[in-house]
Design a protein around this nucleic acid. Structure first.
Length: 210
DNA sequence: ACATTAAGTGATT
DNA sequence: AATCACTTAATGT
């Protein structure tokens, strides 16, 4: 049973009956930063509803390199996971905690009945798909049309949004891995951005001024 | 003081 | 834009 305080931040999303149902069947899960929540090939048993924190969703290419797909933020759920629930297939993606995260886990068995029963649930699922589809299109655009320097700027602003801070604690190497690039290139681009006054660099830290 | 890790740089492909 | 080879700077032990 989930307490009222825990459900509170999500209240605006669902109708009262459904909120009560979520409280009854859901469980709260706390996941520390850096933990892998879902890995490739795993079967999904729970639908995650994100209360706080952020989750990074990546795909792995043939050479074992991770490619950043998108971040899951507050009030959202992972569309890829939903897909797996509906199709009952295994995960195509890996989900890693970007920050300490709390979420509600709802067993997948409620997916179908709730779709039939609750209007707000349908809307929620539908909107998640819609949002994700849009973001995926943007991600594809970014990969094919944006140059690395533009991708880097987008990456940094996404990051600071997700961590609610203009000062990121991250190394150039980590950025390079997320963007499928090399550390040297990232260092040079960051240097350029620093000269343009867009960022301030320090060891393990980047301050954003955009 | 020394080793380790992060970041900067020139040259090459 | 990537890789190599090397330097410099910051941090941990």
């Amino acid at each position: 049973m989930i307490s009222k305080e825990n459900i509170e931040p999500i209240q605006f999303l669902f109708e009262q009956d459904l909120l009560e149902a979520i409280q009854k069947v859901g469980t709260i899960k706390q996941v520390p930063k850096g933990e892998i929540m879902i890995d490739l090939g795993e079967h999904i048993q729970f639908i995650p509803l994100l209360l706080d924190g952020a989750i990074k969703v990546v795909r792995e290419d043939d050479s074992g390199e991770e490619l950043l797909l998108y971040f899951v933020e507050f009030g959202n759920t992972c569309a890829m996971t939903l897909n797996c629930c509906l199709e009952d297939t295994s995960s195509e993606i890996r989900a890693i905690c970007e920050a300490d995260t709390t979420l509600i886990m709802v067993p997948v068995t409620y997916m179908d009945p709730w779709l039939a029963q609750y209007r707000s649930w349908r809307n929620f699922i539908f909107e998640s798909y819609q949002n994700r589809l849009n973001e995926m299109l943007k991600a594809i655009d970014a990969l094919t049309f944006l140059k690395l320097d533009e991708r880097l700027e987008k990456y940094l602003s996404d990051k600071s949004k997700v961590s609610k801070s203009a000062s990121l604690k991250i190394t150039h190497l980590e950025i390079a891995m997320d963007l499928n690039s090399s550390r040297v290139v990232i260092s040079r681009l960051l240097k350029k951005m620093e000269n343009q006054g867009k960022v301030v660099l320090g060891r393990n830290t980047i301050k954003i001024n955009i």
